[in-house]
Amino acid sequence: MPSLALRPLPRALRPAALGLLPLLLLTACGSGAATGDGTRAEAAAPAAAATTLTIDTSPEQNRVRAEKAADIAAKVPEAVRTRGELVVGITGDGIPPLSFLADDDSTVIGVEADVAQLVADVLGLKLRLDRTSWENLFLSVKSGKDDVGFSNITVTEERKDIYDFATYRVDQLAWEVAADGKITKIAQPPDIAGLKVAVGAGTNQEKILLDWDERNKKAGLAPIEVQYYQRPADYYLALKSGRIDAYFGPNPTSAYHAAVSGDTRIVGTLSGAGESLQGLIAAMTQKGNGLAQPVSDALNTVIRNGKYAEVLKRWGLSNEAIPSSQVNPPGLPRQKK
């Protein structure tokens, strides 16, 4: 995915608008994944009245911090320990709540930076964020310029040939509806029969949506009406006005928008990998350099002590939490040639 170079909105406008970027996300986290049959769909609990999330967009983030774990820090490769800092490749490309710029237009903030901070703390290292483009991120990690990449990177089998991974979030798609609407759950194809659904053209979620529609039609259920819009903000205007019943898009931006605006809510999620495999977001390191395991150990430390949960809650992504970090788990399948 190319760097998007989006400028942050004025702080006064952010609570209502920062979540309006869902179309820009999917290719970054593993485009071309196999489409799903809905077997991994997970319905969100029916929501009560929507609550809004207050986001600090100042450069003084007061991040959640963690204590050094000496036993884990000792496993860090000697070159990194000697340097005393963890160099983290991050895009900062304007996609809240993942990675975007603070009010000073230069400080990278978001859930990716916060998780990286926790890892650096446990490893006893100073965090240095190296802002780069999506394309250069992979080159920087492969060459060793960056120790690790934190940028919504999905584990794939192809990427595992070149990099090592330590997981820290699930890769989710989300069903987003109006906060005051009647829809309370979308977990399987029959739940969308007859609905007006918006989706990004050419995305993995579009493939899943059309597959669900075909299954419904074969079962004699009402077809859906698919709608496409040119701008992300249009999806939310359509939801608010009732012109569509649901929007199907990447969970981070949808969850963030729902939490910040209060205008919408999430009524179901589905693995971004589709089929029966749960896609996973991970920290990416150079293959075989010995850093992935201590990064994973650090993540498991903050998962156990609750710091990890604090960070996800801060950015409205509690529903992307994992129970434990894994090194090089099964990734999205290899693409057929």
Rank of each mutant, 00 (worst) to 15 (best):
P2M: 04
P8H: 11
A12D: 13
L13N: 10
R14S: 14
P15Y: 12
P15V: 09
A17H: 15
A28K: 15
G32P: 09
T39M: 04
R40S: 11
E42H: 11
A43W: 02
A48R: 13
T52Q: 10
L53R: 12
L53C: 06
S58H: 00
P59S: 02
P59C: 01
P59F: 06
Q61C: 01
N62K: 14
A66K: 10
E78R: 09
E78G: 00
A79K: 08
A79P: 02
A79C: 00
T82V: 11
G84C: 08
G84S: 07
V87P: 04
V87N: 09
V88A: 00
T91G: 06
G92Q: 05
D93Q: 14
F100G: 05
L101S: 03
D104G: 06
D105M: 11
D114L: 05
V115Y: 13
D121I: 12
D121A: 11
D121K: 13
L123W: 10
L125C: 07
S133P: 07
L139W: 12
K142W: 11
D146Y: 12
N152S: 08
V155M: 05
E157S: 11
E158P: 04
D164Y: 03
E176W: 03
D180T: 15
G181W: 02
K185I: 07
I186C: 00
A187C: 09
D191L: 04
K196F: 03
K196G: 02
A198V: 09
G200D: 00
A201F: 10
G202N: 08
K207R: 14
L209D: 01
K217S: 02
A222L: 05
E225Q: 14
Y229A: 09
Q230F: 15
P232H: 05
P232M: 04
P232L: 06
D234L: 10
L237Q: 14
A238S: 15
L239C: 11
F248L: 14
G249K: 03
G249A: 15
N251Y: 15
T253W: 02
S254G: 09
A255H: 10
Y256I: 11
Y256S: 01
A259N: 13
A259M: 10
S261H: 08
S261N: 09
I266H: 12
T269R: 13
T269K: 12
S271A: 10
G272M: 07
G274Q: 05
G279R: 08
T285G: 03
G288K: 05
N289V: 01
G290Q: 07
G290R: 08
L291I: 02
Q293L: 11
P294R: 09
S296E: 02
D297E: 14
R304Q: 14
Y308V: 08
K313A: 15
K313Y: 04
G316K: 11
S318W: 01
E320L: 14
P323I: 13
S324A: 15
S325H: 12
Q326A: 15
N328L: 06
L332H: 00
R334Q: 13
